[in-house]
Design a protein around this nucleic acid. Structure first.
Lengths: 123, 123
DNA sequence: CTAATATATGAGCAAATGTTCATATACTAA
DNA sequence: TTAGTATATGAACATTTGCTCATATATTAG
C-alpha cells in the first residue's frame, strides 16, 4: 500500500495521488453530476433558516402562507418565494381551500430528513 | 374555523393571521433559535456540491486529502477548507497515519441523511 | 538538525443567495 | 362585473459563501 504521493496525468495536468486504487473506486461509485446537483439543491433548500423553520412548522401540520409569515415574522412575499423553492424541489405540496393555499410536507422523506438531522444536532 | 385574516398585534406591529390557533401551536412546538441554526448549518454543509461529493465519496470508505482533491479536481487547499467545515459540524472525522490524514463519515446519521436524500431525489 | 511531504489557515475577490418593494395573478363575495 | 383578499413573481440591492493565493503548521526521512 503506497504511503507517498505519485503524480498521475489527468487530462494534461499532473495530479498528486496517494492511493490510486481508492481514487479509481471512488470514481466508479460516484453519482452523476445531475444527481449530485439535485441532491445538493435539496440540502441547500433545507439549509436556509427561514425555509427550515417553514419545514419544521409544517411537520406539525399544514399552514397557509400568511400564517407562516406571521410565524417567521417576515413578509408574505418572502415566504412565498421560499415556498416556491420548496415546492419546486418537492419538499412541500399545496391544497387549496377558497383563497387560502395550505402547505404541507410533500412526503415522508422530508420528515425523515428533519428527524435524522435533529438527532445528529442534539447529541 | 376562521377563513379570513384578522389583524393581530405583534410587538407593536399588526400582522395578518388566518388561523390563530395554528400559529399558537406552531410557536409552541418550534425549536429554539440555536437548534434551528445548528440544523440549518448541517444541511447547508451538505448542500455545496464539493462538500456533498466529498461526503458521497467517504460513504464508500475513508480517503485522504490529496486523493479527495484529485477526485473532485479542485485544489487541496479548497478541499481542506471544506473538510474543516464538515469536521466542525461533526459530519466527518479523521484518523492519522504518518503524514496522511484519513477522513471518514463521523456517524451513521450522515449515512442516513445521504440515503434518505438520495431516495427523495431518485423517485 | 534540515529538507521534504501533507495538510491547515487567513485574506481577498467573484459568484450565489435571500430579502424588500412594486406589481401581477387567482379566487371569492356581493 | 367590481372590489377585496390571498398568493405569486421580477428586479435590485446587500449579504453570504467558496475558491485562490500565499503562508503556516505538522510529521517524517535522511
Amino acid at each position: 500500500m503506497p504511503q507517498r504521493a505519485t503524480l498521475v496525468e489527468e487530462q494534461g495536468c499532473s495530479v498528486r495521488v496517494v492511493h490510486l486504487d481508492r481514487l479509481v473506486q471512488a470514481r466508479a461509485g460516484a453519482l452523476g453530476p445531475r444527481q449530485v446537483e439535485r441532491l445538493g439543491a435539496l440540502y441547500r433548500a433545507m439549509g436556509d433558516p427561514s425555509r427550515l423553520r417553514i419545514l419544521l412548522a409544517l411537520a406539525q401540520g399544514e399552514m397557509c402562507v400568511c400564517d407562516l409569515a406571521a410565524l417567521l415574522k417576515v413578509s408574505e412575499s418572502a415566504v412565498s418565494h421560499q415556498l416556491r423553492r420548496l415546492r419546486d424541489l418537492f419538499l412541500v405540496k399545496t391544497r387549496r381551500d377558497a383563497q387560502c393555499l395550505y402547505y404541507s410536507l410533500d412526503d415522508h422523506h422530508v420528515n425523515q430528513l428533519l428527524a435524522v438531522g435533529l438527532a445528529h444536532v442534539e447529541e
